[in-house]
Amino acid sequence: MLTIRNLEKDYGGVPVLERISLDIKEGCFCGIVGPSGCGKSTFLRILLGQEAPSRGELLLDGVPLPNEPSTERGIVFQRYSVFPHLTARENLLLAHDFEGSPFLGRAFGTRRREAERMADQLLDRTGLDPARDRYPAQLSGGMQQRLAIAQALMKRPRMLLLDEPFGALDPGVRLEMHDLLLELWREHGMTVFMVTHDISEAFKLSTRVLTFDKVRTDPQFPDAYGATVTYDLSVDGTAFPDNIEKDDPNAEAG
């Protein structure tokens, strides 16, 4: 479904990501882990279209993805994912408002009722029904993230991107969120990319784990090389060796 070919990203000549080539199957749950500053969030932003790759291609079903955010890619950030000036329910209705009216930005009539039905269903599904008319500032951190996920699902995106979505939550709340996310993933069948720095979380949720790290280092010039995918593991323990370049000695060692 998603093909990444020789993707590279550098900022002002300093490489951040290099030599990334992956094939992602439809419905895959991809965990992305790695140390801080290894470019995993940059990778996610490129998948999202928030940033353009310096070189290489990003193809969805063989068609290049646009270099700006689009409706086939939903996103949940760690913070600021929902709109503070809208209630929980209005947050969910927003996507259909955009679709319904290019000039007024409000949906009316049957489209409105369809959106309301879908929003109420998702509110119910995510346990937010009692909080439907509250503003995000009146919701707990876990509820805000549930709302953010529900909002991202309103457009039924083919890819759902999550940037450390549960990083700011309590451990107990995080476990609930894991269950909810897995259920929604199975129900909607979308492809999920989740950046996390919690390795156990990645292995618990994912069907495939991508590990980012810098494999080549030059002691005289630490900025000479960027990070790449060092391990590409299926969660049943088998690796995806095709995705790791054979001429990389460190990858062989891994």
Partner: peptide, 23 residues
Amino acid sequence: LPVELLVKAQTLGASTWQIILRV
């Protein structure tokens, strides 16, 4: 305004004008 909100609105299909109006 957090850039996250502008990106999120785009993933929900908003045009520049709709972002101005609703976000």
